Every structure is written in C-alpha cells, then in structure tokens.
Amino acid sequence: MTLSVYLSGEIHTDWRDEIVAGCKAAGLDVTVSAPVTDHAASDDCGVAIMGAEPNKFWHDNKGAKLNAIRTRKGIQDADIVVVRFGDKYKQWNAAFDAGLASAWGKSLIVMHGPDHQHALKEVDAAALAVVERPEQVVQILTYVERGTLPG
C-alpha cells in the first residue's frame, strides 16, 4: 500500500527530513510532498512571477495565493496530512491547512509540544492522532502500512 503524505507546518526545523529518513529506514512505501520551505521564495513568489507590489498587503496576497495552489494540490492528493506547529513562530497557515484537511476528510496527524496543547485543542480534536516527535509519525505510518507496532 503506497501512502501519500503531505507535511505541512513550520519550516524552521528539520522535522520533515527526520520523517522522510525514518520512513526510508523503515522501508515504508510512502511518497511525501510539502509546501515550499524556502521562506524567502515562499514570501516572494507572487511578486517574482506576477510583478512587484508597493503595498505589503498585496505583495503577501500574491504569494499566499500562489502558495495555495501547491498547498491545495498537496492536501487534496494526500492520504494523510501531517501538520506541525513549532515553538518559535505562530503558524496560522498550518492551522488553516489542518482545517482544510479536516474539511476534506483527510486523515490528520498533528504534531506539537505540550506548550501548545491548550491553544490547539480544537485542531487536536479534529486530528486522528496528536504527537510530539517525528519518530511517532513514522511509527504511525508503519502501523498504517503494515499493521505492526514499534519493536
């Protein structure tokens, strides 16, 4: 069973690489997609492609819309959506992605530390699993693919 997994959320740590490496080490049949994680490219894609904007609102609006094309496609094509909320910044876009995944009936895994537990209680309630570490995501994917528990 090939699983398509979309990795959404914070872009300032290597959690995605940890999940990809863990899946590879476990020999899982998983394809992974993600948003653009180059912060500058993500912020500036709209104006780089469609032209400069003197007003920051419209600069950000163009970028957000282009990024939404990729995000929507990734979430729609995914069997499982993993959304990570990091410690350093508030990821409003990650909350939005979790909402889309939930609304579209996608299997949702949410990842965050205990300090976000209260703030994300509604997001957590929509998830099928809430974890703190990338290796737990790999263990979930292993269980889903093979039906085996961590050894």
Rank of each mutant, 00 (worst) to 15 (best):
H12E: 15
K88H: 03
A98S: 15
T37F: 15
V138C: 02
I19M: 09
W104S: 05
I109N: 00
V5T: 07
L128C: 11
A41D: 05
D124M: 00
A64M: 10
V47M: 08
M1E: 13
A103R: 14
T13D: 13
Q136K: 01
G22P: 10
R70V: 13
V47I: 14
I75S: 08
Q136Y: 06
A94W: 03
H39N: 10
V123G: 01
H59C: 07
I140P: 05
V5Y: 09
G151S: 12
A119D: 04
K65M: 13
D124E: 04
A52R: 07
E145Y: 01
L149E: 14
I19W: 06
H112A: 04
V81M: 08
H59M: 01
G51L: 02
I75F: 07
A78Y: 04
R16Y: 10
D115I: 12
E18A: 13
R133C: 05
V137K: 04
D38H: 15
R70G: 15
T2W: 08
K106F: 02
D44F: 11
V82P: 04
F57L: 12
L100G: 05
T31C: 01
A48F: 06
T13M: 08
A52F: 08
E135R: 14
L149N: 12
S4K: 11
S42T: 08
F85T: 03
T148W: 05
D77A: 15
V30N: 09
F85P: 04
V110C: 08
V110E: 06
K56M: 11
R84S: 14
H116C: 04
A101P: 03
I140G: 02
H116F: 07
T71F: 01
H112E: 01
V138H: 01
D29M: 10
T71Y: 03
H118F: 13
Q76H: 06
A94L: 11
A52E: 11
L66N: 07
V110R: 00
A101I: 03
N67I: 00
K106Q: 02
F57H: 13
G27H: 13
W15D: 00
